[in-house]
């Protein structure tokens, strides 16, 4: 079956929301079982006492990137039907910087705060509640940010094309960089004083 099986019409779109629930369950399970329901475990990456975020995040990025390349190579997925996050330079950078501050303050990102709330962490629930206020404020203040929101539009640009290399070569470099990071993270974690949490 050539994927994506919903967009290409192999399975009726009526099933899409059911798959959404099942995929979401896998997502939530993977995050919680890796320890992402604990803000102090997540934040350990930034102080060097626990690099679980780096290890899980980049392993997942590699698995998904490699998997999509293989499926595409084998003719099992039509890359043109996949949703590729469009690139808007200004908003991607400024939005990312703002999220980084919220991350360091609150100790969660949206998905992990939800996982924390699901296992009874009140700080996770409060973070998730805070998001509603932030989203509401952005939506109301949208006219002020509209120019920035749409500026620097590059469409569905792929990162390998910036460097003028093939997706395969870029992914290979990504794997090498990630393995280097894993080795470095493990080395640093051994040197840093343990934090009890």
């Amino acid at each position: 079956m050539i994927g994506p099986i919903i967009s290409s019409g192999i399975i009726s779109p009526a099933w899409d929301n059911l798959f959404a629930v099942i995929l979401g369950m896998g997502f939530g399970f993977a995050l919680e079982s890796s320890g992402f329901s604990s803000s102090r475990k997540i934040i350990g990456t930034f102080f060097g006492y626990d690099f679980v975020v780096v290890k899980v995040f980049f392993t997942a990025a590699i698995v998904a990137s490699l998997g999509l390349l293989y499926l595409s190579y084998l003719g099992l997925v039509d890359f043109s039907l996949l949703y590729i996050q469009p690139t808007f330079l200004a908003s991607a950078i400024v939005g990312g910087v703002i999220m980084g501050i919220g991350f360091a303050m609150g100790g969660f990102c949206p998905g992990t705060s939800l996982c924390a709330a699901a296992v009874g962490r009140i700080d996770g629930l409060v973070f998730f509640g805070g998001m509603f206020i932030g989203v509401f404020l952005f939506s109301e203040a949208f006219p002020l940010f509209e120019n920035m929101y749409y500026s620097g539009s590059l469409g569905a640009k792929m990162i390998n094309s910036v460097f003028g290399i093939s997706p395969e070569l870029f992914t290979f470099i990504l794997v090498l960089a990630a393995v280097g990071m894993f080795i470095g993270a493990t080395w640093i974690q051994k040197k840093v004083k343990k934090v009890e949490y």
């Binding site: 939005g95 999220m99 919220g102 303050m105 969660f108 973070f127 404020l137 952005f138």
Partner: peptide
Amino acid sequence: GGLIFGFGSQLA
């Protein structure tokens, strides 16, 4: 943190 993250996620 949630408020700021939520705001940034809409911009990005």
